[in-house]
Write a protein that binds this DNA or RNA. Sequence first.
DNA 1: CCCTCGATTGACAACGTTGTCTAGAGGCTA
DNA 2: TAGCCTCTAGACAACGTTGTCAATCGAGGG
Lengths: 346, 346
Amino acid sequence: MTDTARGTARRYGSRPTMKDVASRAGVGLKTVSRVVNGEPGVTPDTERRVQEAITALGFRRNDSARILRKGRTASIGLVLEDLADPFYGPLCRAVEEVARSHGALLINGSSAEDPAREQELVLALCARRVDGLVVIPAGDDHRYLEPEIAAGVATVFVDRPAGQVDADVVLSDNFGGAQDAVAHLIAHGHRRIGFVGDQPRIHTAMERLRGYRAAMAAAGLPVDESWVSLGATDPERVRSAATAMLDGPEPVTALFAGNNRVTVTVVRVLGERPQPVALVGFDDFELADLVRPAITVVAQDAARLGRTAAGLLFRRLDGIADPPRRVELPTRLIARGSGEIPPYEG
Amino acid sequence: MTDTARGTARRYGSRPTMKDVASRAGVGLKTVSRVVNGEPGVTPDTERRVQEAITALGFRRNDSARILRKGRTASIGLVLEDLADPFYGPLCRAVEEVARSHGALLINGSSAEDPAREQELVLALCARRVDGLVVIPAGDDHRYLEPEIAAGVATVFVDRPAGQVDADVVLSDNFGGAQDAVAHLIAHGHRRIGFVGDQPRIHTAMERLRGYRAAMAAAGLPVDESWVSLGATDPERVRSAATAMLDGPEPVTALFAGNNRVTVTVVRVLGERPQPVALVGFDDFELADLVRPAITVVAQDAARLGRTAAGLLFRRLDGIADPPRRVELPTRLIARGSGEIPPYEG
DNA sequence: CCCTCGATTGACAACGTTGTCTAGAGGCTA
DNA sequence: TAGCCTCTAGACAACGTTGTCAATCGAGGG
């Protein structure tokens, strides 16, 4: 296929290049480049001829080649746990908005809480030469990122700290939020309070557990180990864990649910029981105010987490190289009723 | 900076290339390429030397260059309305999973329901030479995509049909679902039913309106135009639209809410009124069963929409070139109570 | 009329990878 | 030992763009 032939009838699947545009417009390659990029030094007449050729051929600049040449991809990577989780949607969107305001695209992937998959995704993004990474860690050892960070891939961790790597991190005050939640229940007369949390290898789960224990200790209350469940995340296991606490030998009179999915399941479980049971959940969720009783929660601002992280990232990309920061965002207890239910002694 | 120097101490921000690995291992460039890609024809000893050099330098293949050379990016683009919307999270995740199973990454962006932004995003993705596109249209004219589609960018539209362009499309049965919803209300004795829908330029909004009218007509019921509200999407306007219908001269006794966000707002409005009002919402949402009364909805399977679309897309990428398909997925009426509330005559 | 200067334009190399092709080493057969 | 074949390995071009630099042209000044 000759260049002339390409200029008029191209094969399906192959796209015209600047060379094709150039030969059709009767100008040099570099002139096309100048027109495409709006660089000065092209007469209006030449520019018009080039524009016509561009339109006629349906030319669109190949950014792969541009990226290769320029060394910057104008894209950032986001690795999170699960896009379908309502907590991460707003976070992702917030990161996207910041990226957009800096002219960057967002490539993202879900780790499904699997460290191997997290690593695979992160390294795939590095191979694409994303300018920076926002990572919600699934694993607890990120040393595999060291060569990448050393090579200049700006990296910010969100929601959970990185393992074994010194980098920017943006967290919620999980410890303080959990303390507030449990203190709220204690203030309403509860002494036996259960905690249904996430996998123990997840940092937020342990921080929330720590907050739970601290609040209990601060009130001089003992914690029976049968009141603590970790790692039950699927609805069925959450259900049986909660039921065991409520019907056990030392029955709890209130529950603190460790994340939004756990809360939703616990709400269902409690709804089936004859007597009301107090509940505070970590993470706010839509309609929490419309369930009866309305659910008291410790709210994190997911969008703010994302915005803050992306902001830090672009700060790094702008060349600011001060030591890694650790930002902790406050949580907010939203009392809606379910936390004020007094203890019910069966 | 000499090649030797690069091999030992590289400048921050510049990464080693295959050339660096090759000179460090004392082999040719192509041999490194072979090792990196697991191609045969390398003796174990040579391979070991190359691997050592790779590890020592922290080499990672530059996929930008690879993409440029191979012509395939192994990435697909997804343009949707808003990632923070709980309807799109699962859809996005489903597309991602299909992409992953085909070894592709997902680049996505939110159009924020703005046609100009949709076009900007789509064309940016085309410039990146994504292999294919999944688009949830915001605009109604997609002729700007014609050169891209002609050039081989496989494109599938989801949730709403494309405008002026012949391409694969995956939809929910919005018309049928709306009919079901309204018929359900009619079956429970309602004769004056209001519809609070999305912007009229959105295809799904018009289809649902059409279903509403068809169901009313099928039951021989007149529709007072004060019962139809289109375009009120923000909570404040939905609130006043619903209130106007409920308190107007021809007050409605039931409401059909046109999408998940509208439904949530309407639930709030109804919760503040003394007497119960029947409601069916389009789109299911978490906790719809826990609100009192539990909300009857017409459910779409967002994940299935995404899976189906991505499946069609990869079919095209595998070279199957039959005429564009239009797939319509069924909706499901989930009766939970709010639709069975009988008419209350104030 | 010649020289200079600024503006416009294009030739060429480079970005880092992969596909093609060829060279060389070594083993086997006749 | 010659001839052939297989296997390993590297040289080189190409992908489509952008940065550098040099060439050309017209205008204006001496």
